[in-house]
């Protein structure tokens, strides 16, 4: 019970400390919100682009053009290989006759096709890969070109590669940005708590002399740091929500012009909880470092 009272007192004390210096507290919370909010916004944008790219690349296709005089047997063999390949999600065989018929059906090419006596088109397999990962597609391209009877393999994945490189670079930048801002957050909390400790230095010293344990002294500071982190996390979510609401409004107008729907979706409830947890953890960490550093000076010599 006394343990619980001690925690309740620590919570009360830390809340009082926040309201004791409101301007300082608000400034800190703004810095917290920006430090957590910026990487969060970046993460949301990267995730949305990534999600959008997945839907765009839902039907990237690889065309396997077969030798001109290929036998029916060889076509069956190639079909077997494609059927067994884990890199293939689905495939369609387009015979040279079908391909010609498709061309003939097109008004713009009708005259040109009619003027050709022989069918110049090869038989082909149109393959949908099981993954849009450039590495897997490249590997399949290599393997497919070695299959007997396959004359040429065409992959239209250059744009996909570029997009993947862009997303990978963005994610890496996001990680670095997050590390930088998280470090700065810990430093900010450290400094805030250090100032708090200096203000309460006498109380800490007296408490220590009359039997306070390090955890008793540290507890209000840890709560103080954690509260600031929590409010900062909430602030970061609010900033993101405000930004996305505004951004989506204009994006919607733009997308309407192209008869399309584009919306940047915000963090999920799980991600929101994660943001709050990150805020609390970083605030708590900064407070721990600052209070431990100070308590070290007061240790029994």
């Amino acid at each position: 019970m006394s343990f619980l009272f001690s925690h309740i007192d620590a919570v009360n004390h830390s809340i009082k400390q926040i309201f004791k210096q409101p301007i300082h507290g608000i400034l800190n919370i703004i810095v917290f919100s920006l430090s957590i909010g910026l990487p969060l916004l970046f993460l949301i944008i990267v995730n949305n682009v990534s999600k959008y790219s997945t839907s765009l690349s839902a039907d990237p296709q690889i065309s396997l053009f077969l030798s001109k005089n290929i036998s029916q047997n060889s076509i069956s063999n190639i079909e077997d290989i494609l059927k067994k390949s884990p890199q293939v999600s689905q495939y369609t065989f387009i015979s040279k006759q079908t391909a010609l018929a498709n061309f003939q059906a097109r008004d713009d090419l009708k005259d040109l096709i009619m003027s050709i006596e022989d069918n110049p088109l090869p038989d082909a397999f149109i393959v949908k890969p099981s993954s849009t990962e450039p590495k897997i597609i490249e590997q399949f391209e290599k393997e497919a070109s070695t299959i007997a009877g396959v004359e040429d393999v065409q992959v239209d994945s250059d744009w996909l590669k570029k997009l993947h490189v862009f997303l990978t670079t963005s994610r890496m930048t996001l990680v670095l940005l997050t590390i930088l801002l998280a470090t700065s957050l810990v430093v900010i909390v450290f400094n805030t708590i250090r100032l708090q400790i200096l203000i309460q230095q006498k109380e800490i010293e007296i408490s220590k002399l009359i039997g306070a344990t390090n955890s008793f002294i540290r507890r209000p500071f840890l709560y103080f740091g954690a509260f600031q982190g929590f409010i900062g996390g909430g602030g970061a979510l609010f900033l993101n929500w405000s930004f996305l609401s505004l951004f989506n409004h204009y994006l919607h107008k733009l997308a309407n012009l192209y008869n399309s729907i584009l919306v940047i979706s915000g963090p999920s409830p799980k991600q929101m909880l994660f943001v709050l947890a990150i805020g609390v953890t970083l605030g708590w960490m900064g407070a721990w470092v600052a209070s431990s550093k100070h308590l070290k000076y007061l240790e029994y010599q």
Binding site: E205, I206, I210, T213, Y300
Partner: peptide, 21 residues
């Protein structure tokens, strides 16, 4: 050192410089 705070609670300390808040 971790046991010392509990030991100190058995002492009543009156300081020369009072150490009042």
């Amino acid at each position: 050192p971790n046991s010392l705070p509990f030991l100190r609670r058995n002492f009543g300390l009156i300081f020369q410089d009072l150490k009042l808040l």
